[in-house]
């Protein structure tokens, strides 16, 4: 019995395979991503040895993840490697795989699907869990520790351009400080555009950006916002530690 037939037996006949390349089989099994696409699982022998089966995604998992999330910082790479190590999987040039024997295909396939699912959800972890409280924590700090500088929330410096919003304005000086909180790429881009539009309109102001994690932005987004903003704090802790001194220096 070859390993494909053995796997079908292990799954009680509830799987099928499709040969995508010579001796490379795509597994058809009811395991789906959130968008309804089936999890990409491929089977092939290792160097023709029928006792060694490689279960692989042929690079599809990281390709899917890259639609919205890049592994482009040491921290993200470390999280990826941790997921792989904890589940006995390996990554080589974007391909996630693990190897097993024909007798262990059933649990190994389920384990592989779990790895693919965890990696696919890396963006979700970042967006929904880690960052969920950032804006609330920034607001709490601004409205308590910086209250003497008179913060005003949600200010629109250019009439009729309500898409260009300043999170907090500190207006007790000739040139107000416009403070922005940035927790992700989307907000970083909006802040970059806003700063550039305010400069184009020749408004007198100083821009200050507080990042939840500057290092989590892609290199290009880091470059763009650094070019557009006057002052940045790379984390909320950085801002908390240095905000008062900054405001004193600025004479706000």
């Amino acid at each position: 019995m070859n390993y494909v037939q053995l796997l079908k037996e292990q799954f009680n006949g509830r799987v099928s395979v499709r040969e995508r390349r010579p001796e490379v089989f795509q597994l058809i099994v009811p395991l789906y991503h959130e968008d309804g696409d089936m999890v990409d699982i491929f089977l092939q022998t290792v160097n023709g040895d029928t006792r060694r089966i490689r279960i692989s995604d042929l690079g599809m998992t990281l390709m899917r993840l890259s639609y919205t999330f890049d592994i482009d910082t040491p921290n993200k790479e470390a999280i990826l490697q941790k997921i792989l190590a904890e589940n006995g999987a390996t990554e080589d040039n974007g391909e996630i795989y693990l190897e097993t024997t024909p007798e262990s295909l059933y649990p190994a396939v389920l384990q592989f699907a779990q790895v693919a699912s965890k990696i696919s959800n890396m963006e979700l972890l970042k967006r929904e869990v880690i960052k969920s409280l950032f804006y609330e924590m920034l607001e709490d700090f601004v409205t308590t520790s910086l209250v003497e500088y008179g913060p005003r929330q949600k200010v629109y410096p250019i009439p009729d351009r309500d898409e260009l919003e300043v999170d907090y304005e500190f207006n007790s000086r000739p040139r107000p400080i416009y403070l922005f909180g940035v927790k992700d790429t989307a907000k970083a881009r909006i802040v970059t555009i806003s700063c550039l539009e305010f400069q184009k309109a020749e408004l007198p102001f100083r821009s200050c950006v507080v990042h939840e994690d500057f290092g989590s932005l892609g290199r290009k987004d880091q470059n763009r916002i650094t070019s557009a903003a006057d002052k940045q704090f790379v984390t909320l802790d950085d801002f908390k530690d240095n905000a008062v001194k900054f405001f004193e220096r600025e004479g706000a």
Partner: peptide
């Protein structure tokens, strides 16, 4: 985004994502 799998070039993906300015998240 535009993506083509290196090993299986027939596996490509081209997507449009909306980035709302006034709220968190994005919509595919």
């Amino acid at each position: 985004f535009m993506r083509i799998n290196e090993r299986l070039p027939e596996n490509f993906s081209i997507g449009l994502i909306y980035l709302p300015k006034d709220e968190r998240g994005e919509i595919h």
